[in-house]
Computed example of a mutant assay.
Amino acid sequence: MRPDLNLLVILDALCRYGSVSRAAERLSLSQPAISHALNRLRAATGDPLFTRSGRGLVPTPRALALAERVAGIVAEGQACLRPEAFDPTRDAMRFRVGVSDFAGLTLVPQIIAALMVEAPRAIIETQPVGPGLLRQLEEGGIDLSFWGTDPVAAPFHHQPLFEDEYGLVLRRDHPALMVGAGRITLGDYLGLSHAVVSLGDPGKSGVDMALARDGLSRRIVLVSPSFAANLAAVAASQLVATVPIRLARNLPDALVQVPLPIEVPRFRYGMIWHARADASPALRWFRGLIGRVVGEAA
């Protein structure tokens, strides 16, 4: 027979209050319901559990032996059902975040600096993003991810963080700058050798879509998943890279950023998460911290 755990709640109330009427009042049940449950408890334990004394109940030795264990079980059950809370100053938490190296270079340093102050026991675990990102979010492999394309439909949630535009990065002593007196023409741009980032998305980048509208294309020599690797290659060669301005803010001395010779729409950057993670107090707090830190940086 499957045990009825509700009987433990009733036994706990009877032990606490020593009265059928008071137990019924505390549990919002009728007195006959409590008496019926007591009869079932007696049958299950093979012990009377309580005897009458005046208007109250006196526990038997068996009831006294069970009282502490039952109280612990009931308290643990109540704790399991209590709404979750998160105290960033005291609670340990691991936040698993999908991060491209763009986010890793431009956002994560400020976020971890704030986290170390506001949630000293928390950990950020970054994971590379790729074609399986939405499945990772759905299956709980990561809690949230930074997101550089259009928002996706339910059951995913999206929060915009900022907008950015692109600039062209190349060596300070690049021949194209020497010839153009510090500026790059559209003809120069199309004739240069480009390093581009691809995260496995089969679609064209915003830059290539802008060029394609005018029937143009650029010469791509290096494709990698890393802005940092591309900028290292640019610093060591005559490659150029079209990158978000936010990334170009802290270039090494060997590199310089100049305006693009073609109009490319600004892009929106945000974060996404699955509905399964939406109600978590810890993750809500963490998303709020990200929004605040990124907003201050912008």
Rank of each mutant, 00 (worst) to 15 (best):
P131K: 02
Q136E: 14
L137H: 04
G132H: 02
L133I: 04
G132T: 12
V129I: 15
E138D: 14
P131Q: 04
E118S: 12
E139W: 02
Q110S: 14
I112N: 02
V129A: 10
G132V: 03
Q127Y: 10
A122V: 05
A122M: 04
Q127W: 09
Q127N: 13
A119C: 15
L133V: 06
I112T: 14
E125H: 12
E118M: 09
P128V: 09
I123Q: 15
E139H: 11
Q127E: 14
A119Q: 05
P131C: 02
L133M: 11
L133F: 03
L115N: 08
E125M: 10
L137G: 05
I112E: 12
M116H: 12
E125K: 11
P120H: 11
R135C: 07
E138T: 13
I112Y: 00
P120S: 10
L137D: 03
L134K: 10
V129F: 08
T126N: 05
L137P: 03
R121S: 12
L134H: 01
R135F: 00
I112M: 00
V117S: 14
Q110H: 14
L133R: 01
I124A: 10
R121V: 07
V117C: 11
E138V: 10
I111S: 00
I123H: 12
Q127V: 15
I112G: 04
G130W: 05
I124F: 01
L133K: 01
Q127F: 10
R135A: 13
E125C: 07
E118Q: 15
A113V: 05
R121C: 13
A122D: 07
G132D: 13
V117Y: 09
M116W: 06
E138P: 06
E125D: 15
L133C: 01
E139R: 15
R135G: 04
A113I: 08
I111K: 08
E125I: 09
L115P: 00
I124D: 05
I123R: 14
P120N: 10
G132E: 12
P120D: 08
I124C: 10
I123W: 09
I112S: 07
A122G: 07
Q136H: 11
L137C: 09
G132L: 10
I111E: 01
T126P: 06
A122F: 04
L134A: 08
P131G: 03
E139V: 12
V129L: 13
P131N: 03
I124H: 04
A114L: 05
L137T: 08
V129H: 06
A113C: 02
V129S: 03
Q127S: 14
E125P: 09
A113S: 13
L134N: 03
E138M: 11
E138R: 13
P120L: 08
A122H: 07
R121M: 11
A119L: 01
A122L: 09
I124K: 04
Q110R: 13
R135T: 12
P131R: 03
Q110I: 08
A114Q: 14
E138K: 10
T126A: 13
E139F: 08
A114Y: 04
E118T: 12
Q136Y: 06
L137N: 10
E118W: 06
A122R: 09
P128H: 07
I111W: 02
E125F: 07
R135W: 04
V117E: 15
Q127T: 15
Q110Y: 09
I111Q: 00
T126D: 04
V117A: 15
L134Y: 06
P120M: 05
E139Q: 15
